[in-house]
């Protein structure tokens, strides 16, 4: 069972071994509305924690996605180019953005677990 954590920017990261899969939460896709395009990073790109690595666009808004940890992108979800709507319909499944090899898993220590994130979202009203 993969370990899933959340950032305050409404990204989730699912960790299996030293590879993390990143996407946006159900709450985030709801706020954005219909997603029309996701600019995903290329495999091989080295990223630093907090760096803007992807952009998700709806008709009226564009949001940056920040790397929750440092490491190297190993795979991007190419299917999103044709079916960006999967970010809306299945944000934590088929709507994933990219996978990265984590350089230092301890960087994820400050992130929220499912219960903490749900409480966080509730607090946003």
């Amino acid at each position: 069972m993969a370990d899933v954590k959340y950032t305050e920017e409404h990204e989730w990261i699912s960790i299996e071994g030293d590879v993390g899969t990143i996407g946006i939460s159900a709450y985030a896709q709801e706020q954005l509305g219909d997603v029309v395009f996701v600019d995903v990073p290329q495999a091989g790109r080295k990223v630093a924690k907090g760096e803007s690595v992807a952009v998700v666009e709806s008709v009226k808004a564009a949001s940056d996605i920040y790397a929750p940890a440092s490491g190297e992108v190993v795979e991007a979800n190419a299917a999103l180019a044709d079916t960006p709507g999967e970010v809306n319909t299945d944000p934590t499944g088929k709507g994933w953005f990219f996978k990265m090899k984590l350089a230092d898993k301890s960087e994820l220590d400050g992130l929220m677990d499912q219960a903490a994130y749900e409480a966080f979202v509730k607090g946003l009203g």
Partner: peptide, 13 residues
């Protein structure tokens, strides 16, 4: 369309 590239949405980006 694709107006998310433009200044009124992306502003400094």
């Amino acid at each position: 369309t694709l107006s998310t590239r433009e200044q009124h949405i992306r502003r400094e980006k």
